Simulated scan of single mutants.
Amino acid sequence: MNITEAESQIMQALWRKTPLTADEIVADVRARQPWAEATVKTLINRLLKKKAIRSERVDGRHQYVPLVDHANYVQDESQGLLDRLFEGQLAPLVAHFAQNRKLKPDEIARLKKLIAELDDDD
């Protein structure tokens, strides 16, 4: 399923807290993005059509819940980025960031720990 960057803002709101009403989604998203209420509601409707979210009527109000798992979304998006930019290879991605952005000491330590853990698994 292709969730656009704009639509992902709605999904993020629902992954943070669910269920949410349309008004609650609007408030959450508008705290982060300067979008009109109509824009947010259009995105909600697009996600409903894609079956990325579901609407439930509770106490006379529509509440929305995500149908896409956050961890699966992150995995798919991460793999897509890796495939598009680095031919599916992780090492060039890490090298790119290491060469183009100064890594903080804690980031270097975390990478070293991860590599050590991966070595131990072999």
Rank of each mutant, 00 (worst) to 15 (best):
N2P: 01
N2I: 15
I3L: 06
I3S: 05
T4C: 03
E5D: 13
A6G: 07
E7V: 00
Q9C: 12
Q9K: 12
Q9L: 11
I10D: 02
M11Y: 04
Q12A: 13
Q12F: 06
A13Q: 04
A13F: 01
A13L: 04
A13M: 05
L14A: 08
L14T: 03
W15L: 06
R16G: 10
T18Y: 05
P19F: 09
P19R: 07
P19V: 00
L20I: 14
L20P: 02
L20C: 05
L20Y: 08
A22D: 14
A22Q: 13
D23C: 00
D23N: 14
E24N: 05
I25A: 09
V26A: 02
A27F: 02
A27L: 07
V29E: 04
R30C: 07
A31P: 04
A31I: 03
A31Y: 05
A31C: 07
A31T: 10
R32M: 09
R32L: 10
R32K: 13
R32P: 01
R32A: 12
Q33T: 14
P34L: 06
W35D: 00
A36E: 12
A36T: 11
A36R: 11
A36Y: 09
A36N: 12
V40L: 03
L43Q: 02
L43C: 03
L43T: 01
I44S: 01
I44N: 03
N45S: 07
R46N: 15
R46S: 15
L48C: 01
K50E: 06
K51M: 10
R54K: 15
E56Q: 15
E56K: 15
V58F: 12
V58K: 15
D59E: 08
D59V: 02
G60M: 06
G60S: 07
H62Y: 12
H62I: 01
V65G: 15
V65Y: 09
V65M: 14
P66L: 04
L67S: 03
V68M: 11
V68F: 05
D69Q: 12
D69S: 10
H70K: 14
A71F: 14
A71C: 04
N72C: 05
Y73Q: 10
Y73S: 12
Q75T: 14
D76Y: 08
E77K: 08
E77D: 14
E77G: 13
E77W: 01
S78Y: 03
S78T: 13
S78I: 06
Q79V: 12
G80Q: 09
L81F: 14
L81N: 03
L82M: 12
D83W: 02
D83E: 10
R84C: 02
R84W: 04
R84V: 00
F86M: 09
F86Q: 08
F86S: 02
G88R: 00
Q89C: 01
L90D: 10
A91Q: 08
L93N: 05
L93D: 00
V94R: 07
V94T: 11
V94G: 14
A95K: 13
H96P: 00
F97M: 11
A98G: 07
R101A: 15
K102Q: 07
K104N: 12
P105D: 14
P105S: 13
D106A: 13
I108T: 08
I108C: 05
I108V: 14
A109N: 11
R110L: 11
R110A: 14
K112R: 14
K112E: 15
K112V: 15
K113Q: 13
L114P: 00
A116Q: 12
A116V: 06
L118K: 06
L118N: 04
D122E: 10
